[in-house]
Design a protein around this nucleic acid. Structure first.
Lengths: 193, 193
DNA sequence: TCTTTGCCGAGACTGATAGTATCGACAAAT
DNA sequence: ATTTGTCGATACTATCAGTCTCGGCAAAGA
């Protein structure tokens, strides 16, 4: 009862096709409204059969999610300089600016995650990764005494990413480097009160 | 060229029908998955023709939005006691608990707002109202010296509501009275550092 | 009471979309 | 050469948002 007696013969998956699907899915979501992005549209833009999409991904949300993760991986916020205040500001500025640039992508994923469990679980994992990064950074700041000693890192992480997503989804205020700076400084400054 | 020479004759709108639509729309969104809530489902549940829904609302998102606003109006967070720390905690606890109870409704609206401009604009107005309330409360706390003097109320409002929405939408952590309390205290405590 | 106006339900209809199924061509490994 | 599996084309089902038409009926004025 070996699960896979024959490793893999026959034609292999074409990586160019996979990349084309992910690229065009991301581009469509960034450029157009979320409502305009259908699997047919993705297939058409990528020059690919819809069948091929569903061969490799279980749902549209799964495609969009992987496309987002792919884009996110391309830009990782810079390494730590060791100076907490500087690191925090850099991290937030890079995160916010990138998020704003691909806001259509993020908003579409979030909407899809509310109806597609696969996308929801994927988004949760993605978000967990980002939260862990920021959590580690904040913990370091806490240990260095750069944050109030009674700070709850979990709560603070959700305040920061929460603000970002909230503004992206509602659109009442910008998500840019300026906000990132102001936010970072407001968190640091408090200890001097 | 009088726009409306005859004020209004003929049969009037039945308020019970309007209420039934809004009630069942909200109930469906709270009880079921967002994906399961269609206009057909709302019409069926409310014992109403789909035609009647579209006579009074321009889109499904508009119905859901008004249903949400209706529910939100039913519970207004308690009045101010004058003690800022107490008021803040009460406001947050009431807001968070209510939001969690109708989380399905909120998540559905947010998803719909990403594809329906009518729902987006409505949600923005709704959210603005809530933001103004909290903003006023925080400003009072700032004037009373209960918050760090360099606090930016706009930023803080978005941190608080941002955390709430972020947790509702991702579902990685609870939105309850406990979180509200911890959050409120973390904001107050800082001045004592 | 009779007529007009407009609400409302029933249900057919269009168009878009997610996801599935079938087929044939073809590429890769043995 | 044969087997295995990829891929495009295309048709298909099912669902859903939103429109349309029809017929019944309730309310207001004459």
């Amino acid at each position: 009862m070996s699960p896979e007696p024959r490793p893999h013969t026959g034609r292999r998956r074409n990586p160019a096709v996979r990349q084309a699907i992910l690229d065009h899915a991301a581009d469509l979501l960034i450029a157009h409204d979320y409502a305009a992005v259908s699997t047919d549209a993705i297939a058409r833009a990528a020059g690919v059969s819809k069948h091929t999409i569903y061969r490799w991904w279980p749902s549209k949300g799964a495609v969009l999610l992987e496309a987002m993760a792919e884009r996110a991986r391309q830009q990782t916020p810079g390494l730590n300089t060791g100076v907490f205040a500087e690191d925090l500001e850099t991290f937030l500025a890079a995160t916010f600016r990138t998020a704003d640039r691909v806001s259509g992508l993020l908003r579409g994923i979030m909407a899809e995650a509310q109806r597609d469990p696969v996308a929801a679980e994927g988004l949760r994992q993605f978000v967990t990764g980002r939260r862990d990064e920021l959590h580690a950074l904040l913990t370091r700041g806490l240990e260095q005494g750069e944050l109030p000693p009674d700070t709850d890192p979990d709560l603070l992480v959700d305040q920061i990413f929460g603000l970002m997503w909230y503004r992206l989804l509602i659109g009442h205020a910008p998500v840019d480097g300026d906000v990132a700076t102001r936010l970072a400084r407001s968190l640091i400054h408090r200890q001097e009160g």
